[in-house]
Design a protein around this nucleic acid. Structure first.
Lengths: 355, 355
DNA sequence: CAGCCGACTGGAAACGTTTCCAGGACCCTA
DNA sequence: TAGGGTCCTGGAAACGTTTCCAGTCGGCTG
């Protein structure tokens, strides 16, 4: 059960450990006879060089550290899958950590990753503008790429999408369709700059159209399918369209609206962000802004490899988003009638047909 | 940028590396003065012990190796989240690998994990009865826990659910509701013993009721939201109920049926397995058998820790599944009329209302 | 006061690997 | 035949840490 080391191999092949190392790694010269002897010994003993000793000796690890807020969010799972695939192609193992959207935990997680002395780091942090974890990373000077985060004035590379622009475009589309009461629903607002940028895009579009900018509605929303309660929001603002800060939340919002007896998109339109695969499976398909998470993961690792090899400088990659029409966004119905009677209605839910 | 080592700390604190090690780890005696000097030096230099040197010295790693078929499947993402949480609580880092349901890749992945000399392994393999990867692991004798897999006659621990029994119970329920033409749709049949066991449960129930056991319909289905084409299946067998080998596939099946103009559950009932969170968000909620993936992940790591500490023997944990009614399973409509006219209909889709 | 014991400290070996360097064998050329 | 080159090989240092062991020092007991 004791793992077989290079010394065992050397003994069996009657040569020095140096020669074994050279044969196994294909570095340096070796006579055919030697090569054969070593290969036989390796096969018989089932020798596999220890990455620990190996990375200690060459003071560089074949490991990548990855931090995401939560792997149960399909968008990060997809990103992780992309990272993992690209890393494997480059012969790197992937060390993974989750922050659960908690800055404190984020810092601990990054510390643990750093202790492994990885070749590089791929991070999606809560708030890049105020992240102890990023401070740590910067001080260490280890190659790092942010995913989904805007690095601000840090000298850190990033692969991002134009969250604010995408959000603005989406909301402009809603306005063009005739929506006038549009609200923004967010989860983890405090702990997600993605949410925040998307809200800003919403605000851009709404205020440009001279409509009221509602403060974001924050809902308790962690795992991905919690029940959200929109009763108060719906009764107070009676929106005709809701922008959710991500697809998972959008699906929750839709389920919640339907529980309130509201038809989506008949009475309320809903749109999200991310473009998770499951959005296409629901009926009608979710209207969303697609951001290719897998591709972003792949791009992040590719960039990281270039960075680590010193073949390029710190830089930012902007990945294109695409609008996916889906079917949960429609022109509002009975727009005029509704706004005429705005004051008089005290109904909890506003079912146009009953008025 | 060169990382600070224990020697730098020792130099700064004017003591030996041995003392630094003792203070940092809290092992062995140290005078208050020494402790203070070292702590100051550690803080000033931002020293963080290298896990590499550390694990080489104590020949044990604070790392857990995890293999799942694919992190984009929410069920494995949830399992991974559970594993990760429990591991973090125990101070272990998590190394992750994916097999993409490919036995060859599975072997490579496990080899790479093994090279890191992890403290233990948590695996979900394609086929435990014929897995080179598991052979490797067994030979190495490293503490290992299977998740979702039945270890067969291997001496490996496992955390599983009774897939076959759960499937049988589900199909019996369908039969009790009046369904007579029930088919089983699977993805990755060849590469997933979960699928296979669920099919066997289906066969158990169907044959016990004296109904025809249809061979499983395999569909191309990798990422989680591909379009599946059920045209041929529907036209040939005209099922009133479909059992999908997992929830993701069930959602795809529902979307596909609706594209064919069929109402779910009005004309065809559909049920899945796993109990992914998103199943509750669709309309109507997906009928499924819930298997608590996160809990299984947590249990797997807990078991692994006991195993590694030598506090228990290799064992198998069976986690309970629960039936989640949802709304996609209903009694079949127009059962009698349909079977009467079975021969005459050559329609691609069988819309009961139009007959 | 001698002896002993405990607390503290530092030196050094060990972990498994890579890699530098030097030595040896052999062949070729001048 | 001497000299120089090439090719192969092994010894040993290095990587960063833990841990065993031996040594020192002070205080306590007899």
């Amino acid at each position: 059960m004791i793992p077989v080391t290079i010394h065992h191999v050397a003994q069996k092949a009657r040569c020095s450990v140096a020669s074994v190392s050279r044969v196994v790694n294909g570095t340096g010269p070796a006579s055919p006879a030697m090569r054969a002897r070593v290969e036989v010994a390796v096969a018989e003993l089932g020798f596999q060089p220890s990455e620990v000793g190996r990375s200690l000796a060459r003071r560089s690890r074949r490991i990548l550290g990855v931090l995401v807020p939560s792997v149960t969010n399909p968008i990060f799972a997809a990103s992780l899958a992309g990272i993992q695939d690209r890393a494997r192609a480059a012969g790197l193992s992937v060390l993974i950590a989750q922050s659960d959207y908690d800055p404190g935990r984020e810092r601990e997680a990054v510390e643990a990753l750093l202790a492994e002395r990885p070749a590089g780091l791929v991070l999606t942090v809560c708030d890049p503008y105020d992240s102890l974890a990023l401070d740590l990373v910067e001080r260490q000077g280890i190659p790092t790429v942010l995913v989904y985060n805007d690095p601000g004035d840090r000298r850190i590379s990033a692969v991002t999408v134009d969250s604010r622009g995408a959000s603005r475009a989406l909301v402009e589309q809603m306005i063009a369709l005739g929506h006038r009461r549009i609200v923004f629903v967010a989860g983890h607002f405090a702990a997600s700059d993605r949410s925040r940028l998307r809200y800003l895009g919403y605000a851009d579009a709404v205020s440009a159209a001279g409509l009221p900018v509602e403060p974001p509605t924050e809902v308790d929303f962690i795992v991905g399918a919690d029940d959200v309660d929109l009763t108060e929001l719906v009764s107070r603002l009676r929106p005709t369209a809701i922008v959710a800060s991500n697809d998972l939340l959008a699906l929750s919002v839709i389920a919640s609206l339907r529980r309130l007896g509201l038809d989506v998109p008949g009475q309320v339109s809903v749109a999200g962000f991310d473009g998770i695969a499951l959005g296409r499976l629901v009926d009608p398909p979710l209207t969303t802004v697609e951001q290719p998470a897998g591709t972003m993961g792949v791009a992040a690792v590719s960039l990281l490899l270039e960075l680590a090899a010193g073949r390029c400088e710190s830089q930012r990659l902007l990945i294109n988003h695409t609008f996916r029409p889906g079917g949960t966004l429609q022109p509002p119905v009975a727009q005029v009638r509704l706004s005429k009677r705005r004051q008089s209605s005290q109904n909890l839910v506003h079912q146009e047909s009953s008025r």
